[in-house]
Write a protein that binds this DNA or RNA. Structure first.
Lengths: 347, 347
DNA sequence: ACCGAAATTTAAAACGTTTGCATTCTTGCA
DNA sequence: TGCAAGAATGCAAACGTTTTAAATTTCGGT
């Protein structure tokens, strides 16, 4: 047992060839006689030869890894699409022979410091950066270093180009507004968050733009802002909107978790959906299908986006394109039962 | 821009010391004068020196990585606890300075071949193996190689020792039975799967053992088996149990996804829960809290288990303990509203 | 001032690849 | 048969560390 791993030198010796020739044969170099290439391939397969990653990385400068720094989350909170995201990344990478490394920030270490470590230790040839904040030090760092990366999400205003893939939240929120408007709604609510993430502004702007486009002065929009992680505070904010004297007939939530809170609190307040209130979310998390009456939302197909991001990143690494690669993915409406026509006038 | 990474040689030159001394100083060797150690640490910090992983791995034989091979899933199916699991692993690893590498199996490559590649290329010092099948080639391979690993889950009968951490599903299913029995239930249903995973047998055995322990001959148990991934077939199987002439008053599902299907179909058949039917699941996935009337289930705290697994694996790597490390985690009951007293006799 | 031991530092090999350059082997043609 | 050109293979350096063994410096005691 405990069989040792075979090395190139040993393989070469067993074939009575030099390491150079074996290395080249395995790499498929034309200059090595075809017969030799086949002989070597055969022997390597039979011996179960697998090249040592560290040695290969050291000399070639390419690790074959792509890095992802796990966002730091509270003790009981897990990024709800992390699973889908890494699955998609894995799928995208494997077709090019690359793999994923996941680095976690230890307590007291910033996400940036972990990123630096991943980059500067040569562990990865490129990185994926998610959850872009309104001013994001990570992008600035990567750009300064000239290190290949793709961002999942965008900055609002950047004075430099970079590669990104984003979900078109602005479009989705406009679509939600148009649909609700056509159902007769005029009084809207938006539940957003206080965390400085760019996606909240993009989505809110998309909603505002759609309202402006419509040009109907009777349209009203109330906006409330909840803290990101404090569930109790979140409930309070939602109730402020729901239990006020003049509540909206349609509420759009920045993402599904918020929408589910709205639905729970609405039900608790005795409001039926969509009879008394329409609610629309964003993300299409698993629970949204189950929460009565079924949350209407937008599906961003995280897994597909992640696969795309992997492809983009590998392109960036291999070809260093002059122009930044960018890609805007339009989410698809998942119409369930939480939205409907505006309620008959209540005094 | 594109600042180069500093190397040990350069750092040494700038300090007018040999690389040996600098290397040792950074490693904190006692034999290097304290004053020198401090001077080197200071210079390294200031220069932002990060040791090259490949070089370090090559010479030391330790990569500082732990591997996880992503289970192959269908195009639209993602392991529902992957996110929690990798988060937990990351947390466990980072406190020891290790990181995670995620390898995906390409189409047409078996999970085993990916595992071999990870192991034999020296990318990882140890691996985590999840979703243990009833006869699992991966464990046999790792054992033969003598490669450090921890399994999440157990084999039923193994002629060799290995390190594992498992959720005590047998206990949970026994607990579910006892609770339901005390609520008056005598006719039970179990919805299980056809996939040859060990956890299905462990849980089913736990249920059977609890029934036997009770020694009440009036207790009946109906078992139906659904295919793992075919939702349509799953629904059909569930309906076979629900719509039969003599249906159970309490149904235990192997895991929450199945339980949710049971609840949906029961609702569709006009059965109220828990009035007409009690349902209990396992896993406590996010949707279970939202699916009406709220699924009673068991929480296995995947994240915590994963953290524990990381700790175990790092211990195995560092200390190569003689006895296998094993750990059985008791899941906690999450009592919601899907279970209750047995319905008043119906003819 | 000198010796020896202790304290501190260094030279050089090794890890397993890839690759630029040099060498050896074939082969066709004179 | 001899020679040149092309085909095939091999030598040795390099990648950036860690580590063994050896060298150098320091210093107390005489």
């Amino acid at each position: 047992m405990t069989s040792r791993v075979i090395t190139l030198k040993e393989l070469a010796a067993s074939l009575d060839l030099s390491i150079t020739t074996v290395s080249r044969a395995l790499a498929g170099h034309e200059q090595i006689a075809l017969k030799t290439r086949e002989r070597v391939a055969q022997a390597a397969r039979q011996a179960g030869y697998v090249p040592n990653t560290a040695a290969r990385t050291l000399v070639s400068g390419r690790s074959g890894f792509v890095g992802l720094v796990l966002p730091i989350r509270g003790p009981n909170l897990v990024d709800s699409f992390l699973g889908e995201f890494v699955t998609g990344l894995g799928e995208g990478l494997v077709s090019h022979g690359a793999d994923l490394i996941l680095a976690t920030a230890a307590l007291g270490h910033s996400e940036l410091s972990v990123l630096r470590h991943v980059v500067e230790s040569g562990r990865a040839d490129g990185v994926v950066v998610t959850r872009i904040a309104e001013t994001d030090v990570r992008l600035a760092y990567l750009r300064e270093r000239g290190f290949p990366f793709v961002a999942h999400g965008r900055l609002l205003d950047s004075d430099f180009g970079y590669n990104w893939l984003d979900t078109d939240g602005a479009h989705a929120f406009g679509e939600a507004f148009d649909m609700l408007y056509d159902l007769g709604h005029r009084h809207f609510g938006l539940v957003t968050i206080s965390e400085a993430m760019t996606f909240r502004l993009l989505r809110q702007d998309g909603l505002a733009a759609a309202i402006a486009r419509r040009g109907d002065p009777s349209v009203r929009l109330d906006v409330v802002t909840a803290p990101r992680f404090d569930q109790a505070a979140r409930i309070e904010v939602v109730n402020g909107m729901l239990r006020g004297p003049d509540r909206p007939t349609a509420i759009v939530a920045l993402f599904d978790e918020l929408a589910l809170t709205v639905m729970e609190e609405a039900a608790r307040a005795g409001l039926g959906m969509p009879r008394d209130l329409s609610v629309i979310g964003f993300d299409n998390i698993a629970a949204s299908a189950y929460a009565p009456p079924g949350l209407t939302t937008f599906d961003a197909s995280i897994r597909h986006c992640a696969r795309e991001i992997a492809d983009m990143l590998l392109t960036v690494i291999a070809e260093k394109p002059g122009k930044p690669l960018t890609r805007l993915i339009r989410p698809t409406l998942v119409a369930r039962a939480s939205h409907g026509p505006v309620p008959r006038t209540r005094s």
